[in-house]
Amino acid sequence: MNLFEDQNDEWAEKLAPILKKYKEKKHPLDYHNLYQLVVMVVLSAQDSDANINTIAPALFAVFPNMESLAASNKEALIPHISKVRNFGTKANWLIEIAQTIQKDENIPLTMDTLTALKGIGRKSANVIMREANVPAEGIIADLHVIRVAPRIGLIPESKDGIKVEKQLMQILPKNIWGEIGMSISFLGREICRPKPKCEDCPIKHICWYYRLKGQCP
């Protein structure tokens, strides 16, 4: 049997328990508006959401909107993000984004327009679009999805997030794209961790490893 021959609707049915559990659950980044989300998503690349949440209040007290960020410069921004990984590069990205967009109401919400901005790839764009509740054009494939999706048996193992996203888009129906990536991510954050808590998993009965071995991987 080829694990990857399941039809789209069959996988949607199998994954329904995590969609029900996590649908519309807010992203772990503690943002309060779309501007903050964009900034925090850019800062979170190769860093933890928890770290970005820690530095965010002081950062946004100084730079409360896109206009204030656009009027600033890298040297003024860096002290507020110096605890973030690759802060120098990210400072350049954020200043360029702000100077391109200028105002909060100009923040774009399509895949092409978001990924045209410095520091925003498909994963980040998918997160922004999901949190903004606009139609999905892809599937969030963060590090948790990259780890968990193959473990479940959805796709072959890969470390390439773009490849993982494309494979998921091929096997999952478009009507769940907006929520399924984050649902798998939340599962990976809470239950299907590197050392998984299989007894708590709502989809262990369809999990490839669990089904094959009768136990956690």
Rank of each mutant, 00 (worst) to 15 (best):
G153V: 05
G214K: 07
Q36E: 15
K90F: 00
S82G: 05
F63I: 01
Q99W: 02
N51C: 07
E137R: 10
A98M: 01
K174M: 12
N51K: 08
P135G: 07
R151F: 07
I146H: 05
N126W: 03
N2P: 15
N106I: 10
Q36L: 11
A132N: 13
R193C: 11
A45P: 10
A98C: 12
V38H: 00
C201G: 13
V148K: 10
G153S: 11
L43H: 01
K197R: 14
Y210V: 13
K23W: 01
A136Q: 08
Y31V: 04
C192E: 09
N175D: 14
A12Q: 10
L29I: 11
K159Y: 13
L3A: 09
V42I: 09
W93C: 12
E10M: 11
R122H: 14
L168Y: 06
A61S: 13
P108D: 11
D49W: 03
K118I: 03
I176Q: 10
I191F: 09
P17D: 13
L59D: 00
V41M: 04
A76T: 11
K174E: 15
P194R: 14
N126S: 12
D112G: 12
E199M: 14
A12S: 12
P156F: 03
K204R: 15
L19D: 03
K118M: 07
I95F: 00
I18C: 01
A91H: 02
Q215T: 15
R85F: 08
V164N: 05
W11G: 12
E157I: 06
D49N: 12
H27E: 05
N92C: 00
V84S: 08
P135A: 00
F4K: 04
P150F: 02
L172R: 10
T100W: 05
T113G: 01
T110R: 02
P196C: 04
P173T: 10
L3D: 14
H27G: 01
K14P: 02
S183R: 03
V62E: 12
I95Q: 09
C198L: 00
E67A: 15
K26N: 12
M111E: 08
A58M: 01
L59M: 10
V39Q: 03
L109I: 11
D6G: 11
P196E: 10
S82E: 08
G181Y: 00
E199C: 00
M182W: 12
K163M: 11
K103M: 03
V148D: 09
A132I: 13
V127K: 07
A141L: 09
K25S: 13
K204C: 06
I146L: 02
I146N: 08
S124H: 05
E96P: 13
V84I: 02
